[in-house]
Amino acid sequence: MSENRYELNKNLAQMLKGGVIMDVTTPEQARIAEAAGACAVMALERIPADIRAAGGVSRMSDPKMIKGIQDAVSIPVMAKCRIGHFAEAQILEAIEIDYIDESEVLSPADDKHHIDKTKFKVPFVCGAKDLGEALRRINEGAAMIRTKGEPGTGDVVQAVRHMRLIQSEINRIGSAAGDELFDIAKELRVPYDLVQYVHEYKKLPVVNFAAGGVATPADAALMMQLGAEGVFVGSGIFKSGNPEKRAAAIVKAVTNFTDAKLLAELSEDLGEAMVGINEKEIELLMAQRGE
């Protein structure tokens, strides 16, 4: 992958900022998401809550289903491949997907290696729990980062934990002395130049979104105030009572994330939120997949 292509791929993520990326399983849902103001959709056969319920092995979606969603909307379409499954990624690239999510939501295909994303022309987004993970993914070629959170739970606690940890590690590196950066690079298992970048600019070199467990306009506003540059909403929308209304409310909450009065209006009468599973009640922690 040329330097130029990587820049263009990071640039696309910049255009998504301040927006909401929604999980959809059918062309119909994709149209609802676009009409509600999604800046991109994630095409997948089953949303994380159902993947969690179904158990077993979960894989890349049927390309035909993804193409149906590409035809249904004009906004960017993303799709997930398994961690380390570069053949699935090659297939997604062949159908000209706009972004590949190398995702812990699916069953990992490789328990040691992530995909060498520098080999691809299409961009990748990857999940991270902490700064080390984020920078390792960026070193492998990820053009966008999101918190892992705990997908399919409707419980935002892990997304908050991951975002706070990433921010506090950025702050630590930002205020570290120059000669401490070498040891920090060793500790995080990442190249020195990425640590140097974080030290100089006090941010990640790519866009950073929140994901995992966001279910309400208030959740979205919380993540934005904690420093997210945009939000992924997975199960939270189409597992709720009134998807159209909830989706539109979350979009507006992300734009005006500090206006509590508006957030109060947006939070009214949204119908039933997704039921949600407490993080203590689940056996499978997807966030542990792929360090």
């Binding site: 255009m15 900022k17 927006g19 676009e34 103001g37 960017p76 539109a248 979009v251 507006k252 005006n256």
Partner: peptide, 15 residues
């Protein structure tokens, strides 16, 4: 700015 015209257009109207 750049972004998604559908999103910005919708928010322009609704806000």
């Amino acid at each position: 700015p750049g972004g998604e015209s559908t999103v910005q257009g919708k928010l322009l109207k609704e806000l």
